[in-house]
Design a protein around this nucleic acid. Structure first.
Lengths: 342, 342
DNA sequence: CTGAATGCAACAATCGATTGCGCAAGTTGT
DNA sequence: ACAACTTGCGCAATCGATTGTTGCATTCAG
């Protein structure tokens, strides 16, 4: 006969002739419980296969063991890797991961944040929706002391915990790479400028040009709302139609860059000879497209992992921690789409 | 001054001069509560911003509002789409989605199932690990009446709820497509045969050959453990080295098919003239590779969505439902990699 | 040898919602 | 007018763990 509900601390308490509170404290190594008692309790707990009922604990503590992860779209290579890392880190620490997606809509983001709040997650990992420019909806978490860690797409003027890559440096390196390959007129596909990541990438691009004494030409700095394949194609079409087209493109994502390759090829433009291209993210696509797309690689899974670890740290520090920004390194991954020299 | 914990049914009860039990029942439209009372309770609930404390409810009911989703790898196009669909359906119904990945290891799968069980998920959506051949670890769920829905990679000899695609028909159609394009000697890349999906695909392939009076040659039926890019390349190399190489390949996934294209191209084999190729899954890669890869498309997001809906249905039916198998349709998506005729 | 400090553990309240049982007022039947 | 229902709702236990407070023994200092 199975006991539906499993062993409880009351069962253990009865068997050991102690009170449930003692059992509870013993299991948590509470200092006011004797060494011997702790040992006895723990041994019996193992013997009887005791398992904490996390729901009961959650009710009492008004907080679950679940970490919410809020992203724009799950089915994107970068995001799913990030989630993967977060999931592993959380599970390793005995936490569960709750997922939701904003579909890049602010309204969804707000709803989901609210749902997470009401389901009493013990921490939140967020990568903002493309639209998001105000952050009030996170206040309930911040106020009530629940750790929130922003990842990748972050609110840049807020003093909160962040895990990001060095977008400026990455963009600088990518641009410099093109310059090193002999490119002199480099176009840029950027994203919505209210998102810090795109602003930083633009800045890195500009700084690299300046550092190499190359002129800055605003007509070949283009911006997409979502940097979709469609936008990538239109932007490429525009560039190639210019009287003075660029000799290379630094795209702030791979999707648009791949699209650029496809369109350019179809237009008879040789890559990289006529047009060198480098993307951003190092999506799997990069190695499939012909020629293979150079890109900027970043540790997506690590970002997820670290974000979760940050949450756990903040929890254990109990608010004695000052929000910090963790910046991860990136690497230019050079492939045929940008390699002009052997 | 914010109330940390929010409004409870006790607050509503006090204000309305009824008992908490009445409030609880009213909110659930319990038949033994008067129409007027229900209305009054609900109105006040809205007015005071009452929110169910799901933890308390969970404790009492010994069950959460979380649906566990257990997959092999989150960061795969098919899987992440499936999760995306599941997440949307769950959220729409007021449930949360808990994610975990087996990394295709049976041990991980067991651990994660156990973790989900202990965290009292109210339902489980599973796509099996590649390794999995026994299913005892799901018994605790089945025994205790928690709905489990298997998706895509399913235990085929078990009488459980399943959501799958018609792998046999899909494989038949894909093979027939190659035949229609004039292919006469069609190779097959299959997966581990203890997984029903691969067995079915193989069967569909064979049946299509037979239906067209084409000979069956076991030397060009190859099997990969994971159908990775690496395996795809090796299998292609093997095929091209045969004295009598095939004129086409039906691969049970896109990864291996893309790899085949890449290797074949590098070996000077023309696609589709010398070698026509069709994959399976319709991953984004298909449209990136040159030539674009034909594939079998299936509704990944729908599978996730339907799986979650099944869970909800089973819950509401309270065990009065016989396990059924829902089979979704697929479509051959013909692209240049297999189109020999105009 | 006595008052104080210390170590260990029990009591009981609490978290918020759910639910079996029972009771009272109102309705119907005869 | 009395028994038999029906309708509507309250009481109190329960889910399992956590935690502030209290209390009993030892042990130690003076």
């Amino acid at each position: 006969m199975k006991q539906k509900t499993g062993v409880t601390i009351y069962d253990l308490a009865t068997e050991l002739n102690v009170s449930p509170s003692t059992v509870s404290r013993a299991l948590q190594n509470h200092p006011s419980i004797g060494k011997a008692t702790i040992k006895a309790v723990k041994e019996l707990a193992v013997k009887r296969g005791y398992r904490l009922n996390s729901i009961a604990a959650s009710l009492r503590k008004q907080q679950t063991n679940n970490i919410g992860v809020l992203v724009s779209w799950i089915n994107r290579p970068f995001i799913s890797s990030l989630i993967s890392g977060a999931e592993e880190a959380a599970r390793a620490a005995g936490f569960n991961v709750l997922i939701s997606q904003s579909h890049d809509s602010l309204d969804n983001e707000k709803d989901n944040v609210k749902a997470f709040f009401e389901s009493r997650v013990c921490g939140l990992v967020v990568s903002l929706a493309m639209e998001t420019q105000d952050f009030e909806h996170f206040n309930r978490f911040l106020e009530n002391g629940t750790p929130v860690v922003f990842v990748d797409r972050i609110p840049d003027h807020l003093d909160v915990q962040k895990v990001i890559i060095d977008n400026h440096a990455a963009a600088f390196k990518a641009t410099q790479h093109l310059i090193d390959q002999g490119c002199k007129r480099i176009a840029h596909f950027g994203g919505a400028l209210h998102q810090a990541i795109y602003r930083e990438r633009l800045r890195g691009y500009k700084d690299a040009l300046q550092a190499n004494n190359l002129p800055l030409d605003d007509t070949i700095i283009l911006h997409g709302d979502l940097l979709s394949a469609d936008e990538g194609q239109k932007m490429t079409e525009f560039l190639l139609g210019l009287p003075n087209p660029p000799d290379s493109i630094f795209s702030a994502n791979d999707t648009a860059a791949v699209s650029a390759i496809q369109f350019a090829k179809s237009a008879g433009v040789r890559i990289p000879e006529d047009l060198a291209i480098i993307g951003f993210n190092n999506d799997p696509l990069c190695m499939i497209i012909d020629p293979p797309l150079s890109s900027v690689g970043h540790p997506a899974a690590d970002m997820g992992r670290i974000a979760v670890q940050q949450i756990l740290q903040i929890k254990s520090a109990e608010g004695k921690l000052v929000p910090q920004t963790i910046m991860l390194n990136t690497a230019v991954i050079a492939r045929a789409s940008s390699l002009r020299k052997t």
